[in-house]
Design a protein around this nucleic acid. Sequence first.
DNA 1: CTGAAAGCGCTTACAG
DNA 2: CTGAAAGCGCTTACAG
Lengths: 348, 348
Amino acid sequence: MPSSKSDPAVPTRRTRATGRVTLADVAEAAGVSPITVSRALRGERAVAPELVERVQAAAAALGYVPDPAARALASSRSSHVAVLIPKLSNTLFVELLDAVQTSLVPAGYQTLIGVTHYDAAEEEAVLRSFLAHRPAGLIVTGSDRSPAAEAMIEGSAVPCVRLMEVGEGAGAYSVGFSQKDAGRAITRHLLDTGRRHIAYVAAQLDPRTMQRGEGYVAELQAAGLGDRVNQVLSAEPSSMALGGALLERVLREAPQTDAIFFCNDDLAQGALLAALRLGVAVPARVAVAGFNDLPGSDQMVPPLTTVATPRREIGRQAAQMLMQLMRGQPVETPHLDLGFQVVKRASS
Amino acid sequence: MPSSKSDPAVPTRRTRATGRVTLADVAEAAGVSPITVSRALRGERAVAPELVERVQAAAAALGYVPDPAARALASSRSSHVAVLIPKLSNTLFVELLDAVQTSLVPAGYQTLIGVTHYDAAEEEAVLRSFLAHRPAGLIVTGSDRSPAAEAMIEGSAVPCVRLMEVGEGAGAYSVGFSQKDAGRAITRHLLDTGRRHIAYVAAQLDPRTMQRGEGYVAELQAAGLGDRVNQVLSAEPSSMALGGALLERVLREAPQTDAIFFCNDDLAQGALLAALRLGVAVPARVAVAGFNDLPGSDQMVPPLTTVATPRREIGRQAAQMLMQLMRGQPVETPHLDLGFQVVKRASS
DNA sequence: CTGAAAGCGCTTACAG
DNA sequence: CTGAAAGCGCTTACAG
């Protein structure tokens, strides 16, 4: 029979027992105080090895799982890491996210994903909501945000690592590569193969896209072809269909074009398929290069020349860096440049 | 000058002031008790309209943001919704996730994303960790999980909606469509165009893939072609490159094949590109059909015949259903079948 | 190295 | 319709 509250044989229990195994339960089982359990389980030193063992055994036996909410409330630090990315429709960001998550989850952090849609107001709203969770860390894409958003990040004092760009203007900690240098490198490759009328075709127009364009311009100028600069910029979201349309447009409006550098592989893939449909010979009539080396680029007909970007490694290293910051450990290389690789395939 | 703790003019503050604006601050500003603020802000009835207004004004003026951890601890329900998907490398799941998130975030829920990699042990680990957060709701993909995982879901009493499959065996609540019927429909389309040697080529081999295969078999049998069944199953992860390789293999091992139904568009896209490379005429020599209508399928050469699946709508509706469950509201259609659409393009 | 006390910022359950 | 009390399950800060 269930014992009533007035039953004197039953020790007084917390009124709102949730049935959950708590620190106190483990403490009782191990014969120590709750605070000792807390310290032992968190691996805080200053606990006798013997007690640590006893506590761990008791915790395992009871199936104890710490309550993240209680922990967050008491310590004013949650186990959440907030990750802000512009879009889920770009494979690049999904892979970045996947890599970050793969590193963080085994270490006991929960990833909170915020999609900003390249919109400052949305980013601020997401940030506000996330910071209320007192995340232990923050990972954001690039360094292009509103002053208000920057202020929120600064004001929160939450460790923050920025992805994809590197160095000056990329906050205190960043992992990425030089977008401009990458734009230069692929442009140089096209020049090296004899192309002289090279267009840069971009969509979405985020800061990284523009930086690649700057690299393209710089390289043309260095080659004495500054007057040949032809940037075709579309603010529309990037897609394969758009890439095809832009190829057509460039060949119509600037028929002398003999090479196109697309800011992202989805555009370039779409352009290659459109070229097949239209009977435009690639690379004979026009060379095509992309950026990022996304899935499928090596399968195209012809295979797509592109710039391979180390996004998985960027995600992994950013997670490592953030974990060091969250633990209060020093970071030896606050701006980590992981480089890039020009991948020469048959489209150029 | 900063007032010292012993300064008698300073009212005693909580020792560990975090600087955060709390319920108590709002209560003081509004001249009511904290509990009234709590109720007013949560929109609980039984608060005088005038007070609600006063409280909201005070909260806005102070920039009050509720602490999710405190809320979770006190109510033993967090604002988290855990979403379990097999992989981030399949666009299908990313779009599902995006749709779920787009619906949930504006309603004040935080999405916790768990990637299971089609691995039972990983799924159990993720589930264990997520359930410790006492999520308000749970969204999982399909109904293929270990008894241990099912038991954890049941035992947690957290409302759960399953995605992509529908009806019997798909738990208490599901949003999706009949994978088997979709497999039948695309097979019938191939039969209708005169094909008689149709192969079903699948990778990854999750339950949904197998259900599509059952539909393929059923439709062939219904057409009196039960002896023509040719299922080529690869446990490898799905990819465009694999699709190309499987096309080659099928045409080599079963040269009489005049149509291939691939379980996912990435395989089919890879097959179409391989066909271009190899000079295999599609659809003249062999018709190709895919599944899901992923980005790019309409751009292929020739454009890919496939089955359009309403994954965004599935994500959206699942989120709506879950919100009703989390609010304790009744759900009129616990198994929501959103159907599918055969998209006839030039590859068949 | 260990612990008793207090508190994190909310909500629940009980009164009135 | 409103509130005082207690408590959610941890960690911090202070002692010893």
